[in-house]
Design a protein around this nucleic acid. Sequence first.
DNA 1: CGCATCCTTGACTACCGTCAATTGTAGTGG
DNA 2: CCACTACAATTGACGGTAGTCAAGGATGCG
Lengths: 236, 236
Amino acid sequence: MTTALRVAHDECSALDLSPSDATSKVNLLGEHLRALRATGTRQHFGRNEQIFGEGDPADRVCMIVSGTVRLCRHTASGRRHISDFAAAGDLIGFGERPHQSHAAEAVTPVIVTTYRRSNLEQLAGANPKVRSSLCSLLAANLFAAQRQLCVLGCQNAKERLASFLLHLADRMQTQAGELLNLPMGRLDIADHLGLTIETVCRAIAALKADRIVLVPTAHQLILSNVVALRALAQGV
Amino acid sequence: MTTALRVAHDECSALDLSPSDATSKVNLLGEHLRALRATGTRQHFGRNEQIFGEGDPADRVCMIVSGTVRLCRHTASGRRHISDFAAAGDLIGFGERPHQSHAAEAVTPVIVTTYRRSNLEQLAGANPKVRSSLCSLLAANLFAAQRQLCVLGCQNAKERLASFLLHLADRMQTQAGELLNLPMGRLDIADHLGLTIETVCRAIAALKADRIVLVPTAHQLILSNVVALRALAQGV
DNA sequence: CGCATCCTTGACTACCGTCAATTGTAGTGG
DNA sequence: CCACTACAATTGACGGTAGTCAAGGATGCG
């Protein structure tokens, strides 16, 4: 994730989607983590199972091998907010704080490799490249959070959904016209976009009516008019 | 900024506000930057002057000496979003990207010390403490962004204002009952909270009517009932 | 002291949330 | 394999919160 997103926003001329930022994360850390591979523990989680909880001691980090994970918080009044979704290749549970700021839950069946945080830090201490990769990861997460902040602060329901779909297609490296998998349910999308499940449904229905997306099944989409989707996401 | 905010949210029993997280940022970096002091340039900016622009080459970082700065983005459709406000002691313009992701503008008259990014990186390369401070700064910014994400995603206008005021009082180290300075205008607050200026005004008027805040002047507040304000911010 | 800017308040509107009912889907067991 | 069930998604009707438009009041700078 270098300038990928800037390009996607500022120079949105091409018909196909811009290069993924998820990939660079993988490349950055993946190869260096080989040194840790022996110390990692592989774990499986079923749908909706918790990988770690909000407030858990942050002594472990997880590299997602497969599946989709939601990173969420619960407010005192019981409302839920999903900060982000993580997929294969993403490292989660990594922060500077002694406790996890988010819970991680399996949206689909998930396989992760868990490392002791101390091992990772040891590796970072010894290997400057790992260290800078971790820093880049933080920076990438920060940038993603700020982008989402702008989405929630400035956009209406339809625009938020458009932004979300484009971002998802980007991460999944799905080209325009291809089948885009939606691993998460409508409620997850709603809690991520600061909307209700009904509003998400209506926004999807509206995009469908406008022939901007096709909806073969509830968990599969085809972005049939990416230009219009981009225009929406930019509020034009 | 270690667990300060968690404490503020989870164990909100005390009458006075929780310890500031802004302070630790200062302490972390301030002393190490002494080594750079000679290489820094001091600059002054008047109200609404731009310190750096969105998309500017990120070859310089600024330590704020005095005044308040807004960090904002503009969408293609002309809407503005203020990600955060920065005050004395904060380091801004520091990211992993080649270009600034936000514009920095002076809310009040501002004095900053500008350093070449390369100098900072050189210092970080030589001094592990500086390196880890910079990483902590990124992590603190990430945490702050995620907190704000939750505010925008889950809270209504009154709750957002309550969260904002508590956060501001925290950063300014203003105790309950003391005079809290509001350097930014209503429009800035609105663009930060994803509201309109009218809604911000009405939310303030509502808090005033509920005797939760006193409003001596438009730019000064007294949090007269912090307990109620916290309850609001938590959505109770 | 005057003017420009910001703040505040009111009336009206629109978008989104809430509640409710129906349809669709996936997983289970006979 | 199919029926059953539980859950998820969808759609409709309605109401409330916040946005829009507009006007008046306060504030601060020159």
